[in-house]
Design a protein around this nucleic acid. Structure first.
Lengths: 237, 237
DNA sequence: CGTGCTTTTGAATAGTATCAAGGCCGGTGG
DNA sequence: CCACCGGCCTTGATACTATTCAAAAGCACG
């Protein structure tokens, strides 16, 4: 794997514009220390940040870019288990010898910092707000994930696709002037988030396009009526 | 709701035999402080610990007992999103005004301590190992939950039921002498963990009973061949 | 202006949920 | 002690939903 430690594109924590980065919760001394020890890489769209089967002995901090966390079955069929954007983190701290194969793929070009577990551990013990923030992040993600469990179990395919669209909007946002999704995804990508296949996504999008709740131009998806779309799945909350 | 603060069954943290309790990660001074402020309740089997719609402004620490965390849809159909046992925690710290309806129900009689968010926050800032442990707990649960997302999306019903049985075994354990599940669940209960219905659970159990991988005596479920059962879903890892 | 990939749509198939009926078991009251 | 009742379990038949397969159309790109 490519190591870009000596990369002129490196951004030090001082200059980093990502205000949501959890590293900023550390005290100045530790920010400096983590800054010096972190490694940074720029990942191209579609590139693996880490892949299933590889042990990850640290945490990735997304400085810029959008990422999908995936897990696939023996046939290679992929399921997106989480979407992540700026300020989010990737890579669970390895615990014991559990088998937990997960991969992360850049959905856009992404600038990502990596810090090793050993150093993080020391940072945790001396920076309460850092640890607290990370705990809250995991807690919030657990909530979302548990809700996803419920959705996957109880929703129809059509509902799951609506959920996926809203989840994408929630995580990656819209281009505000036009209500266009801030990211370009194939039907297959959406299917992997919703837990179904590309054909069903296509059918459902056609259906709601006819109802004038969404529109498509090329691969762009335009949200015409967020509230109405949400009303289809609101009763699951 | 019944408050049992002045309950002769109360157990102070000194005497508490639950070695996995995360409170024990605090320093002695704070254990004392938390011990004095915590409230304790004994919940009967099937009793709600907290219910969907109720805001939970603190964390429940399970001292003894087994619990299911559930979420239901508008028709009242329930989905178990997590199983929890001794040493586990319940109730995510409330963040913002998100709508996150979740309930917890005792599967056995359970002894549970509760501590309020404000006090916890102070504890977090002064007890690094406590915060760290909690972070690791959430991180581990997130891993499990993300894996569940994948399972629910990719597995057949039969596989999901095997997963549910193994998840129950993993969380609640077996009566070692006989390999009987340490807990009595109805087919409906198992269905709500697996994300299917009671009939399918019954069919699947009959099927594997015929294959001599499990056996049933009354409501007891006996694991005859854990490894072989696991081999049916191993390729998802 | 092909070529190959994605999307769309339709039709066939497979998988799962639902509906229904009968059996089993434990608990209760005569 | 036995008969009855109610809830749970089991099994089969049916209906429905979603996946798969297939083919044509659209689109991006060299």
């Amino acid at each position: 794997m490519l190591k870009n430690n000596i990369n002129k594109n490196n951004v030090s924590c001082d200059e980093c514009k990502n205000e949501g980065c959890l590293i900023k919760q550390c005290n100045p001394e530790w920010i400096k220390k983590l800054n010096e020890s972190k490694s940074q890489s720029i990942y191209k769209q579609s590139q693996y940040i880490f892949s299933e089967g590889n042990l990850v002995n640290g945490i990735f901090f997304i400085q810029t870019g959008k990422v999908k966390v995936i897990s696939s079955n023996y046939e290679g069929k992929q399921q997106v288990v989480r979407l992540a954007a700026e300020g989010h983190i990737l890579g669970h701290r390895g615990i014991g010898n559990e088998n937990y194969p997960i991969g992360a793929i850049a959905l856009t070009d992404a600038h990502i910092c990596f810090i090793e577990n050993q150093l993080l551990f020391d940072a945790f013990l001396t920076n309460p707000m850092f640890t607290y923030s990370l705990m809250m992040f995991y807690s919030a993600e657990l909530r979302k994930s548990e809700q996803r469990t419920k959705y996957f179990s109880l929703m129809t395919v059509e509902e799951k696709i609506i959920y996926a669209l809203l989840y994408i909007e929630d995580t990656f946002g819209l281009n505000l002037s036009e209500n266009v999704f801030n990211i370009s995804l194939t039907r297959q990508d959406i299917a992997e988030i919703a837990g179904t296949n590309a054909e069903q996504v296509s059918r459902t999008i056609s259906f709601f396009k006819a109802k004038k709740l969404i529109d498509t131009v090329g691969r762009k998806i335009i949200l015409l009526d967020y509230d109405k779309l949400k009303s289809f799945i609101n009763h699951y909350n």
